[in-house]
Nucleic acid binder design. Structure first.
Lengths: 214, 214
DNA sequence: GCAAATCGGTAAGGCTTATTACCAGTTTAT
DNA sequence: ATAAACTGGTAATAAGCCTTACCGATTTGC
């Protein structure tokens, strides 16, 4: 009696799952555009629905609230960036620390600056929304810091870097990379080109991890 | 005819200027508490007035809007921090670059972490409020970056650092210091104590400015 | 002391926006 | 083919909040 047949019913030649994912995609795309141009707080659900060509009724079918949509969007952006970094690091020469670091940070910056709107959403519009969102954002930053810390410890283990606590170094480097990412995304010309910014970030990370004397 | 006698009239044994500055102070203090605990967007003007023991009528006498209040508060925080940094740098030994950098960054971190609420307001609650506020915030970050850049160039001039473009380095360092400041403010115990954080920031800045080989 | 001017609190108007109830359109089962 | 079930758009409900008009309280000038 309770069992519902999901994904079986068709509507306008589309299955339920198709319609849902399509609507979800449209809403996310609308949110990317609206949040990055008008700002999260100035974007109303009705506006998002109008841009996505759907209705508020369906909005609540996909997301419980505007914040839930932002949450999902934030996760998408971060998952993509984290994946790019992990892949780049894995593909780099394990014996060459600078190359590893450079590959990872360049992958991150390339991922984030590819679409200015995403950088803005991740680093500006998602800040200070609510206690929940803040906790989530902090967790994401911690995850990035953990990756950096892990890489640093790996180098220390291989005697390429001094053995010490890299916790604060990692936090500082996350902040530095974030600042460079925003700069590259908003004014990615000349001095702040992706190439220059990636080089700067790499130098800074190497200097911070390998220590002042090297 | 048009000339108004300002500050002359008394009300409840207080002059106009006295009442205004007092109210302003109470409103700012209420805003610090409300913004940092409930968040900027969740704090209504009525709430602020209730906490400050005044009325909405008087709120608009002092500030044109809630955002204007945040703007003023943000400026206060930054002015104090910038002043502390400038004083610390001026008092430091011009010949000892690391001491200068350490004094400046320690002064900044001490100023910001002295009151957790201020750190939260400056680095979290003020982000992504509006186009105006964003421009203002960016300008403040640029000002900090300019100070760092100037110090770096000063060192290069004295042949204590290599001669190069420090623009991106300064931006990265501002981000790093911001990240450390937030960490110290929110979890300023053990590893993230003011002392440790200041030391980390100093090391990073010296390494970044003086170059990898030193 | 009295009128004119100023100050400040209350309360209501008006706008925006989230949320849901309702109904029309569409599909499946018998 | 028709009833039952499901899908989705419109529109109304409801709440929150900014803003200001109004009016009593207080003070100054004459």
């Amino acid at each position: 009696m309770e069992a519902k047949k999901i994904d079986s019913r068709m509507y306008r030649s589309r299955t339920t799952a198709e319609r849902r994912t399509e609507r979800r995609g449209k809403l996310v795309e609308a949110a990317i555009e609206a949040f990055s141009s008008s700002g999260y707080r100035n974007s109303s659900i009705e506006q998002l629905c109008a841009m996505a060509g759907t209705s508020t009724r369906n909005f609540y079918e996909e997301f419980g609230s505007k914040e839930e949509l932002l949450h999902a969007l934030y996760d998408d952006i971060n998952k993509r960036a984290l994946g790019a970094v992990a892949a780049a690091i894995a593909a780099a020469d394990p014996e060459n620390p600078k190359a590893r670091v450079g590959a990872g940070v360049t992958a991150y910056l390339a991922s984030v600056t590819a679409d200015v709107r995403l950088a803005r959403i991740a680093h500006v519009e998602s800040v200070g929304i609510s206690a929940d969102m803040e906790a989530h954002r902090q967790a994401a930053l911690d995850a990035f810091a953990a990756i950096i810390k892990q890489e640093a410890e790996r180098m220390a283990m291989a005697r390429q870097a001094p053995t010490r606590d890299f916790s604060l170094t990692a936090i500082a480097l996350v902040g530095a990379i974030k600042g460079l990412a925003v700069t590259a995304a908003t004014q990615g010309d000349g001095t702040a080109s992706l190439k220059n910014v990636a080089a700067e970030a790499t130098e800074l990370m190497v200097a911070a991890i390998l220590g002042p004397r090297h």
